[in-house]
Design a protein around this nucleic acid. Structure first.
Lengths: 309, 309
DNA sequence: AAAATTCATAAACAAATGTATATGCATCCT
DNA sequence: AGGATGCATATACATTTGTTTATGAATTTT
């Protein structure tokens, strides 16, 4: 291995300016240095490497052959640094590129709608969503596999920074004065016998609800399928059956007694959603923008609008 | 104009090693530095440019996106420096490339033979010979147009380094006891009537002699053309005619009275040859080799062998 | 021939860069 | 749980880099 050239980046800059101007004085002016500073650096450069790069003949400067070669290299290097600078500076500002997010299984029901809205605002971001279980999220976060993760609980052991961005509470809504309205801790199996109004298959909220019943070994047969949260709400109030709805969506109606919230075992399904990152992890602009986005938007409204909870 | 990236070449080396090893400790070992030295430089690099290049998560290092970009650039720069180093180191040793020599008009008669011998030894040199007059040589030397110049007198005014490498003295040789042997200061016109033995057309020495006569308005008609200095010498001794020969070549014969040297006006033609360069001029290896070559060879013998004076 | 320009050099000093040693702290491994 | 490992930080110091000012030497311009 040959010992490399002994040169500082300042010497590169100075040499380039000197070689281009063929003048120490002009180079010094251009770089905002004193003339002796330039002279000294050039002298050191030559002494350190035991090469003559510059000849002063009469009053004019000439490059030796190694000097010509050196100029080429210096210019290439300065170009490279300039490019690099541009890339970095712009990459620090532009919201673009890959955004790797690990998502805990139940979040997959609503994440697409959030992402859709996010991409609408920042079309140059390429999100990569991985749906994995909680344990693996923690492991892989530790290994810096993701920029962010979305989960329902934040483990305390780990060095995570986390921010809540969404509280979702799914309650069982029944027509006013339903036979179970006054009951406490209604067994989940009791509910299963009711007429169930549900969103169409594939709806996020329907899947969430089905999952919850499935955990208790119950499979719900929908009595009727309706296309939106709003229409289900109306149908419940009309006495067509019961349903599971976001508490937020029926808050006013429940208050006025237009429908009742049943106290069923396993309900409400409370979902507090957090976005988390490793404490030492540096968020690139796209990731930071996503966090900001989560904090700034009204997720209830977004999901209601997309009608997908 | 964007302010350029603030980075030292040491930081480039350190960053590259860190990014490649993904370890400060290993990078430090590789570079023969202490671990804190590496840590500090990386920290300064990031602080100075307000960018995070490296993330330490748990115990492992990861490159951020700017870090990845940085690594690319660092590797390109190090490659460039490595190439540069190679070029310079080899260019410092190899005797090759262009060798620009300015030659005063009369030297053109013998230079080709010297060059031929030089190229025989150093085939990778590409000599560029320019034949110009003395005044222009001085001007253009000052402007660093040539590596070397060949001339007969060295002006004292100028800052030239010069070395004599060849003394040539052309004398008029006549058969022993020639009718003009005792004469002093024989007019050049007197000689013109003699039978002249000469080398074939194109011979360096013939051109040199013809030039000298031409300066006096005399055109010599050769009585006989012979192929070598040696055969002319024999012919002169045999009484066939007179000729102009290097004094060196007939020194012994003249001493023993086998032929006479005539004291003709304008003779001997004395040529002291110097190789010169500007005092501050740096000779590259090929140029230095040429100077050494001139000093080391026996030019009399070389020219005699090529039979061209 | 005098004046202006340009590079070289020196001295004295200020700032930055780079270093080793020692130590702390967190993580990883066993 | 305990030891080993790896990075961060503090301190103190050495070296390098850059500064101004002054001056010298040489060349070019006027």
């Amino acid at each position: 291995m040959t010992p490399n050239l002994h040169i500082t980046s300042q010497q590169i800059r100075i040499f380039e300016a000197v070689a281009r101007n063929l003048s120490y004085t002009k180079a010094a002016e251009e770089l905002g240095l004193s003339q002796p500073a330039v002279s000294i650096q050039m002298k050191r450069l030559e002494e350190n490497n035991d090469v003559k790069f510059i000849e002063v003949i009469g009053k004019k400067l000439y490059l030796t052959r190694p000097g010509e070669r050196m100029l080429k290299s210096c210019q290439r290097i300065l170009d490279e640094l300039h490019d690099l600078n541009g890339h970095i500076k712009s990459a620090q500002q532009k919201i673009e590129g890959e955004l790797k997010i690990a998502v805990v299984t139940p979040a997959k029901y609503f994440m697409p709608y959030i992402l859709k809205a996010f991409l609408n605002r920042y079309p140059d971001v390429r999100p990569a969503i991985t749906v994995i279980n909680r344990r693996r999220i923690l492991d892989e976060l530790k290994q810096n596999q993701y920029d962010l993760s979305i989960m329902g609980r934040v483990p305390e052991e780990l060095k995570l920074d986390s921010f809540p961005f969404f509280q979702n509470e799914l309650v069982v809504a029944a027509p006013a004065k339903h036979r179970l309205s006054k009951e406490k801790r209604i067994p989940i199996s009791e509910i299963a016998t009711e007429r169930f109004l549900m969103r169409e298959k594939g709806s996020g909220i329907r899947m969430s609800v089905e999952d919850r019943f499935a955990e208790n070994g119950i499979i719900i047969e929908p009595y009727m399928e309706l296309g939106s949260t709003e229409s289900i709400k109306q149908a419940v109030m009309a006495g067509l059956g019961i349903s599971v709805l976001p508490k937020q969506a029926i808050r006013i109606e429940a208050k006025h007694g237009h429908l009742d919230i049943l106290d069923v075992e396993g309900f409400p399904v409370i979902r507090d959603w957090y976005v988390a990152k490793m404490k030492d992890k540096n968020l690139h602009p796209a990731a930071q923008a996503f966090v900001d986005f989560l904090n700034s938007i009204d997720i209830e409204r977004l999901l209601a609008m997309s009608d997908t909870r």
